[in-house]
Design a protein around this nucleic acid. Sequence first.
RNA 1: UCCUCAGUAGCUCAAUGGCAGAGCAUCCGGCUGUUAACCGGAGGGUUGUAGGUUCGAGUCCUACCUGAGGAGCCA
Length: 440
Amino acid sequence: MAALTTISDIGTHEGQAVIIRGWLYNLRESGKLLFPIFRDGTGTIQGVVAKNAVAPEVFDALKGLTQESSVIVEGKVRADKRAPGGYELDVNNVQVVQRVPDSDPYPISLKEHGVDFLMEHRHLWVRSPRQAAILRVRAEIIKAARDYFDDRGFVLTDPPILTPAACEGTTTLFPVDYFDEQAFLTQSGQLYIEATAMALGKVYSFGPTFRAEKSKTRRHLTEFWMVEPEVAYATLDDIMELAEGLITTIVQRCLERRRRELETIGRDLSKLEQVTAPFPRITYDEAVKKLQEGFEKGALETKFEYGGDLGAPDETYLASQFDKPVMVHRYPAKVKAFYMEPDPQRPDLALCVDVLAPEGYGEIIGGSQRIGSYEQLRQRIQEHDLPEEAFKWYLDLRKYGGVPHSGFGMGIERAVAWICGLEHVRETIPFPRMLHRMYP
RNA sequence: UCCUCAGUAGCUCAAUGGCAGAGCAUCCGGCUGUUAACCGGAGGGUUGUAGGUUCGAGUCCUACCUGAGGAGCCA
C-alpha cells in the first residue's frame, strides 16, 4: 500500500510507492509521454507518464488535464539528476478530484502578469510558489517573534480591536458603529499593554491594527499586523537592546528554517547573514549631520532641516550607510507622539527610537520610553487637543504606582518585505488591505 | 489630497492620424525526456466611459472612471 506523503518529504520515500494529494501545476506533453508537474503546498514535483507503462484510463485522465485541476496521484519516487528537486514521480494511478473546465481555464498562467490582475486574483495568486514561500516566511517571522518574547518571560496580552478613542491623535482612524456610539478600529495596542505591563511586568501584543491614512506607497497597508512589547521599569536603552535581539533572532530563524523559501523568492542571503548584533546606534542629531552631508555630496535632493521628522528618502539614505539595521534615537519631542518621555538631559528631545531596515525598507520598529509623570502626561494630552476623559484610564496608570516603562512596535509586513527582499508590502500578507483595494 | 504614468483579445504587449496584430492561454492535430517544452492549424475585439476635432481617431483635445509609481503621514 502506497504511503500518503508530502512533496517536501518525498526524498525520504525514494524507491517507494507514495500518494500525493494536490493540484496540477503545469503539464508538458510529448506524444506518448506526459510530464505533469504537481504541487501540494509543500513543493512541486514532476511526474512522468509513459503511455505504454500505465493503464489507458490513467494516461487519458492526465492527457489534456487543465492547470490547477485537483488530483490525487499515486506513483513511485525516483531520484533523477534532471529534476530540479532531485526526484521525479513515476505515476501509476491518478484520481482527478475536480477538473478545471476548458471553457473557463485557470486565469493565472506561468507567464508574466500585471499587478492589478494579480491583485484582483489574490485568492488564486497565493498558490504560486513564490507567494506561498513568502507566506511561509511570514509565518516563521511571527513564530520567531512570539518565541522570542515567550522565552523571555513575556506574557501575551491582547488589546481590544474596537476602541473608544485615538492612541495618537494625529493619525486617521476607521470609525465603526458601536450600537448607539461611535467606536474606532485600533491603530495600536500600546496604551492598553501599558496597563497590562503594570499588571504583569513584561507583556506583548500581537494583532491587527488599522490606519485610515491615504498613503499610497510600497510600505503602507490600511490593515497591518504589529508585535508590540511593553516592559515595566525598562528604559529606552533596555528596549533598544530588546529590539536588536528580536530582529537578530527573527533573521537567524529564517536563515535556519526558511532558507529554501528565501531561495525560491530569490533573496540575497548574504545580506541577511550580516544582520548580527550590535546594530549601529545614532542620535537624531548625528542623523541630521549625515543627512546634511548627504545633501552636500548630492546623494539627497533636498537639504534636511533640523527639527523635522525623517522622510522616506532620508531613511533610505541613512540606512544605506550601514549593512545592518540602524537605530536612530532621541528625536525632537515635537515631531513625536504625546506619550513619549522627554530626555532629562535635553527636554526638547524624546526618549524614542526608530529602527531603520537596510536596503531602503524604512522604519520597521518605532519605540520609546513612556511619560511617567501624571501631570506631564495630562499636559501633553491637552497640548495635543485629545479628549481628556477618554484618557482617564490611561492617566490612572501614572496615578496608581506609576513606573518608568518602555516598549516598541514592529510592523510585521515591513519586516517580511525586508527579510524577503520584496518590492511592496502587498505581497507579505495573504489579503492586503490598501487605499484602493478591498477585493478579494 | 497632490505630482507623474498607464488603460487595445482571458493574460502580457505591438500598431507614423489611414485594413485591429503577436506571444501565451483555450480548442484541433503532431512529437518517448520535456524544464515558462516545441511544431502546424482554429476560434477569440463596443481599443476604460462620454463628448469633441478630422475626409478618416486605438492614436489628437476635454471631462470622468479605474489602476500603478512617488510625495506627505506612518509601522
